[in-house]
């Protein structure tokens, strides 16, 4: 599934979408950047409450398919700019990580 298909299916908001054709391969949930660096895998979606600019650096290094900011948290403006420059997709939703992850699981993500 591509990020674009995910956005349509789960009604996610696109905050930065420089590369929505990226393929998704699994997901990781976490707010501690060291854990995400060490544990998340290439192609993962990253569900988090962190919306600052260094999130983009981590997403880029791990080659994540998209960041999904949950529970209506907001991205910082400089994070959005950096994501557009670097080709990192930033999405958001009002849902909780658990609920979103359950619906992803049901769709075999």
């Amino acid at each position: 599934m591509t990020v674009k298909e995910l956005v349509d299916q789960f009604d996610l908001e696109v905050i930065a979408g420089p590369d929505l054709q990226k393929e998704i391969d699994g997901a990781y949930i976490g707010d501690l950047l060291s854990n995400v660096m060490a544990r998340a895998e290439k192609g993962n979606l990253w569900l988090t409450v962190q919306g600052h600019q260094n999130v983009v650096a981590v997403a880029l290094l791990v080659e994540l398919s998209a960041v999904i900011l949950v529970e209506d948290f907001d991205y910082e403006e400089n994070a959005i700019q950096k994501a557009c420059q670097k080709g990192v997709n930033l999405l958001k939703t009002g849902k909780k990580s658990y609920d979103l992850a359950c619906s992803f699981y049901e769709s075999n993500i």
């Binding site: 707010d31 501690l32 950047l33 060291s34 854990n35 995400v36 660096m37 060490a38 988090t48 600052h52």
Partner: peptide
């Protein structure tokens, strides 16, 4: 609060 300072930095470096 930014998700740093979990005390895993050098631990991860040593691991890898």
């Amino acid at each position: 609060e930014m998700g740093f300072g979990a005390g895993m930095g050098l631990v991860n470096v040593k691991r890898y």
